[in-house]
């Protein structure tokens, strides 16, 4: 605390508010401006994408754009439904394959791994997230694709092909560049995301829950299945949805293996497809008319909306768990 007693002679104490106050105001103003700029950035992204897609919606209407499958730049017909289908199909395959493995790994790390192994293992799995998408694409084109074509897909076709309904998923010639291969590479890419968040969520489960189940005479697995996983359910769902968001927006790796050929929907996973992101990446250079260009921007707009909704949903789910009461540790 500054003393304001009178001092003999001319005071050396400066209580001049303006001297420091002005600097503070300027600095705070500058940082606040930066924060506003970030708000503005998202605003500009959304507004520009809406503005630049106006031509396509004026040209043919939102309904035809979203719900038809004819994508014909020559006759200026732009229906993205096949792209939406390809995006959803490949992402769901990725999610279905990745979630059990990711949650399993998270369960191992939290519930089983000796403490010296925990951090190295989760660090290694999380390194998968640091590998650039283009390298996944490269690996998928030259390694995963051929494996799918010559081994996995013929196998699936032989054993599941004859089954009614399910067999429809495995029709056609296995080429290794199709929705299934895209789904598999997406699964590998979202594995670290789902694993890392699930691990975080599982460590939030109070030990009292585990002990309660143990004390009823439950085996280790029964404790996990009966007490730990149900408690973490919302958070794990959030983790999976964040993984889904990543899969839906993923571009390069998918573009390189999904085939980029078909705009029809056959239902077979061996069919080459298109995702929204890969359609943009493949076609933006060919946009030679206002309407075509606008159609491509509109795909990005749809992608933005889907990704945003999914992200918000996932955050709400993860929050429900973390907000709950915590464990009490015990010292006898």
């Amino acid at each position: 605390m500054q003393q304001t007693e009178p001092v003999r002679g001319p005071s050396r104490i400066r209580l001049d508010v303006d001297a420091s106050g002005r600097g503070d105001r300027i600095f705070e103003g500058a940082t606040k401006a930066a924060a506003w700029a970030i708000l503005g950035l998202l605003g500009i992204i959304i507004i520009l994408l809406i503005f630049e897609s106006r031509n396509i919606f004026g040209h043919q209407g939102i309904g035809q754009f979203l719900f038809t499958t004819t994508w014909d730049p020559v006759f200026l017909e732009f229906g993205v439904f096949a792209f939406i289908y390809g995006t959803v199909a490949s992402s769901l395959i990725g999610l279905l394959l990745a979630t059990p493995v990711a949650v399993g790994a998270a369960v191992y790390i939290v519930e089983y791994a000796p403490s010296w192994l925990r951090n190295p293992v989760s660090f290694t799995v999380e390194l998968l997230a640091a590998i650039p998408s283009i390298i996944y694409g490269l690996w998928a084109v030259f390694i995963l694709g051929p494996v799918m074509r010559f081994h996995v897909e013929p196998f699936l076709q032989t054993y599941f092909g004859p089954i009614p309904i399910v067999g429809g998923l495995f029709e056609g010639t296995p080429i290794g560049r199709d929705i299934l291969t895209a789904g598999v590479i997406l699964a590998i890419m979202i594995l670290p995301t789902i694993m890392a968040i699930s691990r975080e969520v599982l460590t939030q489960v109070p030990d009292t829950q585990r002990e309660g189940m143990h004390s009823l005479g439950a085996t280790k697995w029964e404790v996990i299945r009966g007490a730990v996983l149900p408690y973490a359910r919302a958070g794990i769902a959030g983790a999976a949805i964040l993984g889904l968001a990543r899969a839906i927006g993923e571009t390069m790796a998918v573009t390189m293996v999904i085939g980029n050929a078909s705009t029809s929907i056959t239902g077979s996973l061996f069919e080459p497809g298109y995702t929204m992101a890969s359609a943009i990446a493949n076609q933006f250079r060919e946009a030679d008319s206002q309407v075509y260009l606008s159609a491509i921007v509109a795909i990005a707009l749809v992608l933005l909306l889907i990704a945003t909704i999914i992200n918000i949903l996932a955050r709400i789910l993860i929050h429900t768990l973390v907000g709950r009461h915590n464990s009490s540790t015990r010292i006898g």
């Binding site: 992101a277 943009i280 990704a307 999914i310």
Partner: peptide, 11 residues
């Protein structure tokens, strides 16, 4: 942070 990078590219 959750924006797909291709969307940033289009923007």
């Amino acid at each position: 942070a959750g924006l797909p990078s291709i969307v940033v590219g289009v923007f």
